[in-house]
Design a binder for these strands. Structure first.
Length: 568
RNA sequence: CGGGGCGUGGCGCAGUCCGGUUAGCGCGCCUGCUUUGGGAGCAGGAAGUCGGAGGUUCAAAUCCUCUCGCCCCGACCA
């Protein structure tokens, strides 16, 4: 492609509304443009990178024995109502109506649709197992789109769904899919790590996420030197208990005007946050419950859900909190709290003389003692585990890192097939629900993750596998006949050889073109200028290492192909 | 949704507090000449309903009301 004819709008300055490296560089290098919040145009360079990644994903999916299909973006509400997700998925499900007022969802994921296909078409265990996948635009009306293409409302995803007669078969495919993901991310030169994950809105039993290590990542991963790795939501561990050996003191009421947060109250009283206990009111499948957690800790809602045997646990709204506690948000406490279950974290049990909300506006209680001053329904492990806690497996201290979640795999079991009555006839003549797995991979997000890990101060440094072009030819001065002719010949020869080449034939100053070349970051740059042509050479420069080599003008195309091959 | 901030040529910004010439600056863009190895020089030029609506005023980018959009921090997930 000739740069002079291509839509590659680069910018010298950083865009004002981009925070992360990948977002900034994707805008500056002209890969993407925002249409509206969380919705992006992919310009030629961005789209070529997307397609390179897609192609690798396809190759590995096909190698793993999957079949590519394409399902519609639009699906009828009734299908989502069958599984209950029309309600459960919440506001994130992007709903539209047709001219008759009938409701549809723009697909955020396709379990319902693929299960509908399979229940209509597959009858026998003899047809199992198999895996279907697609690469398609997905829609999720995110609470907060951000970081460009990393968290978009419209994005490109590969989603795969496997169907089995039993768990053993699912386990085998699950492993194979995780292996495929490993190969994909290795081919893309990513530093990544598979970690145990919670199942969230998709559901199912086991799940793993593939995390690309990045400080700008939105996910916190808990790791142990014993090899354990899990998302913070999923991580199991032990919070070190605090025992002071103090004797219980008499309960006191204290005025805490307008102090609603742990920070405010602990600062006001001059005590450590762990001397406070937070009381958080949740709605769990319709029940109202109070969760108690030490002031220096957060509740893990997934764990709380497990403790309660509830599918959906959400923080209660302000009205519910006032109704239950008789006080505005910020002053909830367990003392005298009637009519709700009180679930406390294990670390609350040994505490002595703690501070809690008074269930009365602007009032807290001091020297509260569990057991003496209030009763809990049950003690459970409901704390979010973090760096410094001890590993549930080996007891060593846990560490953490940040990552971008680029893919996730789930063992769904019969979660969808059961409620959608998707069954097959097994060997024993009995109809059974399909055992299912699903495997998502964010394609557009992966491109951003690649840039997060592969850039320098000058711009993107593409790994060859994802680069929009293999080579850039940079003609220093297109007004020079010699330069132009040499560049054109090289351009033709490389293209004829099947090399993807971007030819910077613009009539611009050399500085501009060098800067743009670094910004766009193709693996190999070939500079054609009078200075080197006089010596009968062109200059090849490897973007990643900066290594520069004189290449004789005659036979340059062959030499450049050799260099490219060495880069991959 | 809660908290913070921003909307002024394509991009980055100043001007707004304290209303008052023709709304500026840098980059980019167009034309010409010169230049050509790390974001060139000179000359000329195009391009802005100051996010939108309503209001106050002799006068509004600037003040008031409403509204739309965007970004950042938090609760979500590929």
């Amino acid at each position: 492609m000739r740069w002079s004819k291509a839509l590659i709008p680069t910018h010298k300055e950083d865009p004002a509304d981009a925070e992360t490296v990948s977002h900034r560089l994707m805008l500056r290098a002209g890969l993407i443009r925002k249409l509206t919040s969380g919705v992006y145009n992919y310009l030629p360079l961005g789209w070529r990178a997307i397609r390179k990644v897609e192609e690798i994903v396809r190759e590995e999916m096909d190698r793993a024995g999957c079949q590519e299909i394409l399902m519609p973006v639009v699906s009828p509400a009734e299908l989502w109502q069958e599984t209950g997700r029309w309600g459960i998925y919440g506001k994130e499900l992007w709903r539209v109506q047709d001219r008759n007022g009938r409701f549809f969802a723009l697909g955020p994921t396709h379990e319902e649709i693929v299960t509908d296909i399979v229940r209509n078409e597959v009858r026998s265990y003899r047809e199992l197992p198999f895996t279907l996948y697609q690469i398609q635009t997905k829609f999720r009306d995110e609470l907060r789109p951000r970081f460009g293409v990393v968290r978009a409302r419209e994005f490109i995803m590969k989603d795969a769904y496997s169907f089995h007669r039993d768990d053993d078969s699912l386990d085998e495919t699950y492993r194979r899919m995780c292996d495929a993901y490993t190969r994909i991310f290795e081919r893309l030169d990513l530093t990544f790590r598979p970690v145990e994950a919670a199942t969230g809105a998709i559901g199912g039993s086991t799940s793993h996420e593939f995390m690309v290590l990045s400080d700008t990542g939105e996910s916190e991963v808990i790791v142990c030197e014993c090899g354990y790795a899990a998302t913070d939501e999923r991580a199991e561990g032990t919070v070190r208990p605090i025992e002071t050996g103090e004797s219980p003191l008499p309960l006191e009421r204290i005025d805490t005007p307008d102090m609603k947060t742990i920070e405010e109250v602990s600062e006001f009283l001059g005590i450590e946050p762990w001397r406070l206990v937070k009381t958080i009111i949740y709605e769990a499948d319709g029940r109202t419950v109070a969760a108690l957690i030490r002031g220096d800790r957060e509740v893990n809602e997934a764990k709380l859900g497990m403790a309660l045997g509830a599918d959906l646990v959400v923080p209660a709204g302000a009205e519910t909190i006032e109704k239950v506690t008789g006080a505005p948000v910020g002053f909830s406490g367990p003392v005298g709290l009637e009519g709700v279950e009180i679930i406390a974290d294990h670390t609350v049990e040994p505490l002595v003389n703690i501070v809690v909300g008074g269930n009365e506006s602007d009032v807290h209680l001091k020297n509260v003692n569990p057991g003496r001053d209030f009763r809990t329904t049950e003690f459970h492990d409901i704390a979010l585990i973090g760096r410094g806690d001890s590993c549930a497996r080996c007891g060593k201290e846990l560490d953490s890192f940040r990552g971008i979640e680029v893919s996730q795999a789930f063992k769904l079991g019969t979660k969808y097939s059961s409620c959608m009555k998707a069954t097959f006839l097994d060997e024993d003549g009995v109809g059974k629900p399909f055992v299912m797995g699903c495997y998502g991979l964010g394609v557009s997000r992966t491109v951003a993750a690649i840039i997060e890990q592969h850039h320098d101060d000058d711009g993107i440094v593409w790994p060859t596998s994802a680069a929009p072009f293999d080579v850039e030819i940079l003609a220093v001065n297109v007004k020079s006949d010699d330069v132009r002719q040499a560049a054109e010949v090289l351009y033709d020869e490389l293209q004829a050889a099947g090399v993807a080449v971007l030819y910077d034939d613009r009539d611009d100053s050399p500085g501009t073109k060098f800067k743009d070349a670094d910004l766009v970051g193709l693996p190999l740059r070939v500079t054609v200028g009078d200075r080197s042509l006089k010596r009968g050479v062109v200059e090849a420069r490897v973007r990643r290492t900066g290594e520069q080599t004189d290449v004789p003008r005659d036979g340059a195309a062959q030499e450049i192909q050799r260099m490219l091959a060495a880069l991959t």
